[in-house]
Design a binder for these strands. Structure first.
Lengths: 133, 133
DNA sequence: TGTAACTGTGGACCATACTCCACAGTCAAG
DNA sequence: CTTGACTGTGGAGTATGGTCCACAGTTACA
C-alpha cells in the first residue's frame, strides 16, 4: 500500500506519515519503484503501529517515548531479561495512569450526579478522590 | 502563600506557575502587597487545581482543554443542564481513554508473561486486544 | 536605612508535533 | 509519448507548552 492509501486508512495526513517515518515510528519498505527516491510501501503491521501510536499519544506519551518503546521490540537484539525490564517499567507507568484516570472518572461521575440530583448535598471535592490513591 | 512556596509544594517552576496563571488555569488572589505589580497569593484550592492540571495533562489533555474545563466550573454562570452536558462529554472521553488504557495494559501484561515464561507460544498480538474494544 | 531575598513584566528562546509548500522525479493509463 | 496523479525531499512556518533572562519594584529583617 502506498502512502496515500495508508494515510487514508489510518486517518493521518501524508506529511504526518512521513514525519513519523523520519522519527523511526513507522518502517515502510521500499519496492524499487520510484527511482532515485523509492516509494514507501506500508503493510498491515504499520496500520497497527499507527494505532499504537495514536493510543499511546492520547495517553500522554511523547513520540520520542513511543519510538523508544517500539524500537526495542523491532530490533530484537536485547536480552529477554532487558525487554521484560523495559516493558515492566512501561506497565507500571500505564497502571499509574489508569489509577489517576479512575480517580478522575469517579470524581466526574460524582460531580455529575450531584449536579443532576442533589445540589443541596455537599459538592464532591476532588481532593477526597485524589487522596484515595 | 506566595509564588515560590506554591511552586515548591506543587513541584512546578515559578515560570510555569505564571504561565498557567496567564492561561487562566490558576486564579491567585492579590493582597495589596507588591505595589504596582501586586503579589499573587495562592490558596489550597490552587494546589488542588495544579494536581488536576497535572493529571489531566498526563492523560493527554491540552492546557486549552483543561482551561475550558475549569473555567466552566469557576464562573458558575451556566445552567445546571449545560454543566451536566459538558461534564458528561468529558466523562465519555475519559472513559474511552480508560478503555484504551486497559487494552494497552492487558497487552503489555500478556507480552511480559510471554517473554518470561513461554516464548514458544504464539506472541501476543496487539490487534487482538485492540479489536475487543 | 541598607540590603538580601523576594516579586511581576516583557520578551527571547526552546522542544515537540505537526503542517504547508515548491520542486522535481516517477508511474500508469490512454 | 503525453499527461495527470502520484511520489520523495528540503525547508519554512505554526501551535503548544514551557524555560530563561534582564530589569525594576517591594518586602522584611538586621
Amino acid at each position: 500500500m502506498l502512502i496515500s492509501e495508508f494515510a487514508r486508512v489510518t486517518g493521518l495526513t501524508r506529511d504526518t506519515v512521513r514525519f513519523y517515518t523520519r522519527l523511526g515510528l513507522l518502517h515502510p519498505k521500499k519496492n524499487g519503484k520510484g527511482g532515485r527516491h523509492p516509494y514507501s510501501i506500508f503493510a498491515d503491521k504499520d496500520i497497527q503501529a499507527a494505532e499504537v501510536i495514536r493510543i499511546s499519544q492520547s495517553l500522554g506519551m511523547s513520540l520520542k517515548e513511543i519510538a523508544a518503546f517500539t524500537e526495542e521490540r523491532r530490533k530484537g537484539r536485547l536480552t529477554r531479561e532487558r525487554r521484560v525490564e523495559i516493558m515492566s517499567a512501561q506497565l507500571v507507568s500505564l497502571e499509574s495512569k489508569a489509577t489517576e484516570l479512575e480517580v478522575m472518572i469517579s470524581y466526574m461521575r460524582a460531580k455529575i450526579h450531584w449536579l443532576k440530583w442533589n445540589e443541596q448535598a455537599p459538592e464532591p471535592d476532588f481532593e477526597n478522590y485524589a487522596r484515595l490513591n
